[in-house]
Computed example of a mutant assay.
Amino acid sequence: MERGLDIRNSTVMVTGATSGIGREVAKTLAGKGAHVVLAVRDLHGGAMAAEAIRKAFPEAVVEVGPELRLDDAASIRAFADTYRKQQRPLHVLVNNAGANYISDGVTADGVPLLTQVNYVGPYMLTRLLEPCLRAAGHARVVNVSSVTHRYGVIGNPAAFLSSSNSTVGGQYPATKLANVLFTYELQRRYGTQGIQACAVDPGSVATAIYRDSKLFSAQPLKWIIEKLYAPPWDGAAAVVHVASAPSWGAPAPPRGRSRMLAEWPPHMDLQQTPQWFFARGLFALPIITHFRGPGEGLLNQLRMYGWAAKALTLSALDWPLRRVTNGAWGSGTTAVPSAPTSYDRGLSTALWDLTADKCGLSRE
């Protein structure tokens, strides 16, 4: 099981730390005594974020790494090479950077840009920094996912990695499901070697991720996001918790009727391969976490629409509940079941292997 962590004097790397959740995570962890590395694509923005952190915490140790573009494999390799050459450990890697409404272009390797930024890039970065994580003795990888992973579908991993039109229910939810599948496969492969992994749902947060959406930038959803969704400093709380808590405790057992859960726990013993997914506030309620995922047929479609309506309602109540109660309700971060599909060992293994091939990395 997971060993204790002392965040003080630990080296923490946060991707996407120029704004939003990533910036607040970096700021809070620096305030807790961590040595924070900002892994960002905008070096000027990174420098401004670092200066703001030092202003808030004069004793903070924060640095801006070389440019990291998750949409560019060469940039990821160069960034990881630079860090490895410093021959220092990495205690916590927070894969926070992500996007939603970007173009339908593809990378030089034929990967859809959204899939590259949200999943393949973090996968590649984590794999290339593996020696630094091992050098820490015991390390953590924190992958920021989303409640939307609960209706994500990856029917064919090869198609998911090569086409933006291959996923039922949308590409973004599929990438967030891929984050969780990657997390669990990483835990199975590296958990006994001192590298623990978890995924976390930060909840409904008002960040720039909605900016380029025609739907969410128009009324009334724009008003809901601006007035009812949590500010980034509050949305960072769940990520900060799992990055800095001395111990994660016991994982939550899976829920839902699904073919891949039929033989649980013999193939996935929680004592041998614990699989942690965290959520906070109303996003940790069974009404959200016990959703079985999308399925075929009219009844399943109606069930899906009903769950989506409940999830949207709770997303608008989560931050107001904390605000009016001064944090007395809805502030805790707990281990909860992730989507049933995320426990599919065959799917996570196939996705890991095919992604390794795309990145030119060993499958082992």
Rank of each mutant, 00 (worst) to 15 (best):
E130K: 13
V106Q: 12
L125H: 09
A136V: 08
P66D: 00
A316H: 00
A136S: 15
L114W: 05
A252H: 03
W319V: 00
M48I: 06
Q171Y: 05
L285I: 01
L5T: 05
V25G: 02
V106F: 11
Q171V: 14
S338G: 15
P265S: 10
L125M: 14
D212N: 15
P320K: 03
A47V: 07
A308N: 02
T207H: 06
G297L: 12
A279R: 02
A56S: 14
G327D: 05
G249K: 11
R8H: 13
P58S: 09
V168M: 08
Q116F: 07
A108L: 09
F277D: 11
Q86I: 01
T82E: 02
N143S: 14
P253A: 14
Q301Y: 09
M1Q: 12
T333P: 00
Y190V: 08
E63M: 06
L68K: 00
V106W: 02
G306V: 04
L282V: 03
A73G: 03
P286W: 04
P266R: 13
V144L: 02
S146C: 08
E63D: 12
R88D: 04
A199H: 03
V117M: 13
I288M: 15
S217C: 09
I21C: 07
A197T: 15
S315I: 00
V62T: 04
A279P: 01
K55M: 04
L285G: 02
S331R: 07
A284M: 11
S362D: 13
G33S: 11
A208I: 05
Y123K: 13
L161C: 06
T15L: 11
D269N: 14
A230G: 11
G33H: 06
G137T: 11
P294E: 06
R127M: 15
V239E: 00
P202R: 00
F216H: 07
L321M: 13
E226H: 06
A199K: 02
T175E: 12
R188F: 05
R150K: 14
A60Y: 03
V94Y: 02
A139N: 07
A199C: 10
W248M: 12
L351W: 05
A136F: 08
F57V: 12
Y119N: 07
V239I: 13
F283M: 11
V37G: 08
A218C: 08
S145R: 03
S145M: 05
E226I: 00
T175S: 15
M260E: 15
A328K: 13
D104G: 07
H290K: 12
V153K: 11
S75K: 00
R23I: 03
N156F: 04
R255A: 14
F182L: 14
A309K: 09
T325C: 10
G45C: 09
L68F: 01
E130I: 05
A50I: 04
A139F: 08
T289E: 13
V180R: 08
Y101M: 07
G22V: 03
